[in-house]
């Protein structure tokens, strides 16, 4: 069969929830176009019920993921970077189409995203030393503070940077042991939906990252008021939506990370996003029975 007569095999982009690839419960899709307005694919238009299912999946995954050793989490995150590298060409094409970049520029963005993922993979077993530690106290106690993950985090992904921005907000959330429900960029969801396929083949337990394409304005309020969501990252919300979501999130005292303007996603991100969704647990432990001399050590 000659090249010209071969039928096109179009890809059906699907959500990534609980380690599976469902269509939207609502059955809806919307058209995704490239930067010039040409049709690329149909993406699922998720409903609030998809968001609810994603929270259930994320909650179910939280115990195992937060309980895994930091070292193990780092290995799994590094494995994701390896898988991303293997599908580099696909992501270069999707990012180029979504953001209107040339092949070389899109390649640079994808490389930066993979490097960003590796960078966060290294942080998993080091963040404890940075934000935790032994506290001096006036008594015969060890006093130790350790960071603990906050829980289920809703992430409204950046609207413009469909891949580097997305990875820059997902990786820090899960590196510290949280689980994530991600609302993709509405305009350019395809790299995010393809990321789901990478996560599914990387030893990452199902439900740790759940990816929903659709309108942040539609799902956001339900996730922000959801009593079983512990935190929300408003990176991709515009000012009006961010305000609405922050008000809804106050109901059960969710941690809220307000949108911060990012001009250049390739710049060093620092540890702000890593520490945004951490709680501090402090333990007092007796140093042991005191001898006559007043000290046991």
């Amino acid at each position: 069969m000659s090249e010209s007569t071969r039928l096109n095999v179009f890809k059906t982009y699907k959500l990534y929830v609980g380690g599976k690839f469902p269509r939207s419960e609502s059955g809806r899709v919307y058209e995704v176009t490239d930067s010039k307005g040409n049709w690329l694919a149909n993406a699922p238009l998720s409903s609030r019920k998809d968001a609810r299912d994603a929270v259930v999946a994320a909650r179910k995954a939280f115990g195992g993921w937060s309980g895994a050793t930091a070292y193990n989490r780092g290995q799994i995150l590094y494995r994701i970077a390896e898988m991303l590298e293997g599908r580099r060409d696909q992501f270069v094409r999707e990012v180029g189409e979504a953001e209107g970049l040339s092949k070389s520029k899109a390649g640079a963005v994808v490389d930066a995203a993979i490097d960003r993922w590796v960078w966060y993979a290294g942080w998993t077993d080091k963040i404890g030393q940075i934000v935790g530690g032994a506290n001096p106290v006036a008594g015969p106690f060890f006093n130790l503070s350790t960071p603990e993950p906050t829980g289920v985090v809703t992430v409204v992904a950046p609207q413009d940077s469909s891949f580097l921005g997305l990875i820059s907000v997902i990786a820090p959330v899960i590196a510290t042991g949280n689980t994530a429900v991600v609302i993709t960029s509405e305009k350019s969801p395809l790299p995010a939906l393809s990321l789901g396929e990478v996560l599914a083949t990387s030893d990452l337990p199902g439900g740790v990252v759940n990816i929903l394409s659709g309108k942040a304005g539609e799902m956001g309020p339900h996730l922000a008021s959801h009593q079983d969501v512990n935190a929300i990252d408003l990176a991709g919300a515009d000012a009006a939506l961010a305000k609405e979501l922050e008000i809804a999130a106050a109901d059960n005292l969710k941690r809220v990370l307000r949108p911060q303007p990012v001009d250049d996603w390739t710049a060093d991100p620092g540890t702000t996003r890593l520490t945004a969704f951490l709680e501090t647990k402090t333990v007092w432990h007796p140093t042991g029975s005191l001898g006559a001399g007043g000290s046991s050590y």
């Binding site: 929270v55 008021s225 959801h226 009593q227 079983d228």
Partner: peptide, 14 residues
């Protein structure tokens, strides 16, 4: 039931 009466999704903490 809580979802129906408050309009927001509840969770196992409640």
């Amino acid at each position: 039931r809580q979802k129906l009466s408050t309009g927001r999704y509840s969770g196992p903490d409640y």
